[in-house]
Design a protein around this nucleic acid. Structure first.
Length: 583
RNA sequence: CGGGAUGUGGCGCAGUUGGUAGCGCACCUGCUUUGGGAGCAGGGGGUCGCACGUUCAAAUCGUGUCAUCCCGACCA
């Protein structure tokens, strides 16, 4: 492909709307353009890369026996009413009417359509198992699309759906898909891990998320290197500290009164945050139990964790059995505690429904808390004696350095991006939509289903996030838009042009997908552009080539330039690099 | 949907106490250049997001609205 006849609107400067490195590069390198919030055009370069990524996914899906099809992006709302997800999806489901005034929606996912399809066309257990997949658009009217393709409203997904006669069959189909995912992400060169997603979903569903580790991931993952435990920060637990520092201190005292210390008020003028009070009293933050007042749909609740910890609001929601949760407004806190913000403690609270404490708080006897009084804190506060917790649960966020609850290894916390999600659905959709087949005994049974997604656009952007540097995109050859670039440094020079044309023609004849920069621009611009758009190998033809009769092949990943005395050895090397790319 | 920020030529930005818009890059023409975002000369392009208002006069002040981005809530 000649650069001059292709379409690569590259940008010299960072676009102001992008904040993520990969988002900036997608725009700068001319891979995508935003049309509207969360809605993107794939430009020719981005599309080429996307197609190569899709092909890798296809190969691995096909080799596990999945069959590709394509379902409609526009779907009748009736089907969604039938499954009940019309309401579940709420505003994320974009609805509209056709000219007949019938209701339609843009597909946010395809369980309904695929279940309906199989229901109408698969009648016997002999046709099972069956796994269908597609790679195409989904639309979710996200509240806040962001970070380019990472969270878009319209996005490309690979989604697969397995149909089996029973649970054992489902397990087998699920295993195959998991294996396909492992192969796909290994081929892409990612550092990834499957983690169990939220357990105890309706109907005993089981699902795992495929997480790729990246500094800029939106999700946080807790990992134990020793036993391999991995879970999302909202699910992960850690071994709880059995004793607080104060308790250890008092246990060492000989006086009985010291071992059973009473609540004692401390004067803490203007010291509100745990940091401030800890510094003022010269004690460790771990001696504190902080009390936070939350507002929920069923009234106000108090939650307590150790002073050196953060509350995990998802865990708290689950523990308290509420759906909505947010920190109470200042005036509510003052009304409930009778003190300004920063001095809340767990006793004498007005109009409070519930006190939820972290299990670590319950594990120890003596805490420093707020006194519910301006400029005062309370020491030696004992759960059960000085206040009554209603619920004791794990409501703290795991922190790096915590001990693993399983093997007592040290936990680390890493950022990650969710690129895939595999799910055992069971009979959830087949039963709702009454999708049945006949088993060996001639009895009608519901299909046992699984579903398996990969965010394809998001994967492309993650590849760029991981494989790029300051000079531009550094994609592996398996997904780079072109395999090789030929750059003519002076398109006005006849000799240089002749050599460039010849190399371009020869490589193309070898079946190599080459971009040939034949533009009549200055050398610097062309070299910068080629680096930016992410071509792994480039052959530079300039004066040096003509003068010294030396052909240069540059490998982008390593920065190494190899030189060759004749074209045959250049081509041989090019062929080798593409056959066994290190990248 | 709450909080914050920004909207001025294709891109990135400046524009003072209100006086009718400018810079860099890009673009077009010509010449010279061509191994890491070239030089000289000439040129085109903006009803300053939109609407209403204040004013003799609005990019500038006020109100509203829309769009984009960030934080939060949300996310098979």
């Amino acid at each position: 492909m000649r650069y001059s006849s292709f379409f690569i609107p590259s940008l010299k400067e960072d676009p102001k709307e992008a904040v993520l490195k990969s988002h900036k590069l997608l725009l700068r390198a001319g891979y995508v353009r935003q049309l509207s919030g969360g809605i993107y055009t794939y430009l020719p370069l981005g599309l080429k890369s996307l197609r190569k990524l899709e092909d890798i996914i296809r190969q691995e899906m096909n080799s596990e026996g999945a069959v590709e099809l394509s379902m409609p992006f526009v779907q009748p709302l009736d089907l969604w009413k039938e499954s009940g997800r019309d309401e579940d999806y709420g505003k994320e489901l974009l609805r509209f009417k056709d000219r007949q005034d019938r209701d339609f929606c843009l597909a946010p996912t395809y369980e309904e359509v695929v279940t309906d399809l199989v229901k109408k066309n698969v009648k016997s257990y002999k046709e099972l198992p069956l796994t269908l997949y597609q790679i195409h658009l989904k639309f979710r009217d996200e509240m806040r699309p962001r970070f380019g393709l990472m969270r878009a409203k319209e996005f490309i997904m690979k989604d697969a759906y397995s149909f089996d006669a029973d649970e054992e069959g489902l397990d087998e189909s699920y295993k195959k898909m998991k294996r396909a995912y492992e192969n796909i992400f290994k081929r892409l060169g990612f550092d990834f891990k499957f983690i169990k997603a939220e357990a105890g979903e309706i109907g005993g569903n089981y699902s795992e998320e495929l997480m790729v580790f990246s500094e800029y991931g939106e999700d946080r993952i807790v990992i134990c290197k020793d036993c391999g435990y991995a879970a999302s920060i909202d699910e992960a637990d850690s071994a709880s500290d059995c004793h607080g520092p104060l308790e250890r201190f008092y246990a060492q005292q000989s006086e009985q009164s010291c071992r059973q210390p009473k609540m004692t008020k401390l004067f803490t003028p203007d010291k509100k945050s745990v940091e401030e009070v800890a510094e003022y009293l010269k004690v460790d933050k771990a001696c504190f139990a902080k009390t936070l007042i939350y507002e929920t749909e069923s009234g106000f609740i108090a939650a307590m964790v150790k002073g050196n910890r953060e509350i995990n609001e998802r865990k708290l929601k689950k523990a308290a059995g509420v759906k909505n949760l947010f920190l109470a407004k200042e005036q509510d806190v003052e009304r409930i505690t009778g003190a300004p913000c920063g001095f809340a403690g767990p006793f004498g609270l007005n109009g409070l429904n519930l006190i939820v404490i972290d299990e670590e708080i319950n594990n120890s006897e003596y805490w420093i808390t707020g006194a519910n009084e301006k400029d005062a804190h309370m020491a030696n506060v004992k759960p059960g004696r000085d206040f009554t917790p209603n619920i004791v649960a794990d409501i703290r966020s795991v922190q790096a350095g915590d001990k693993c609850a399983r093997c007592s290894g040290v936990l680390t916390v890493k950022n990650a991006i969710e690129l895939g999600h595999i799910f055992k659905l069971g009979e959830k959709y087949s039963s709702i939509l009454n999708a049945k087949f006949l088993d060996e005994k001639g009895e009608a049974r519901f299909f046992v289903m699984g579903c398996y997604g990969i965010g394809v656009g998001r994967t492309l952007q993650t590849l760029i996030e991981v494989f790029s540097d300051d000079n531009g995109i550094n994609l592996p050859v398996s997904v780079s838009p072109f395999s090789m670039a030929v750059v003519s440094l002076n398109a006005n020079d006849e000799k240089i042009t002749d050599v460039s044309e010849k190399i371009y023609g020869d490589l193309t004849a070898m079946g190599i997908d080459v971009i040939y920069d034949d533009r009549k621009l200055s050398a610097g611009i062309k070299l910068k552009d080629i680096d930016l758009i992410g071509i792994p190998f480039k052959i530079v033809v300039g004066n040096r080539t003509i003068k010294d009769n030396k052909y240069e092949l540059n490998i982008k990943e390593s920065g190494i330039t190899e030189t060759f005395g004749d074209l045959e050895s250049l081509y041989k090397r090019a062929g080798e690099l593409l056959k066994n790319p290190r990248v």
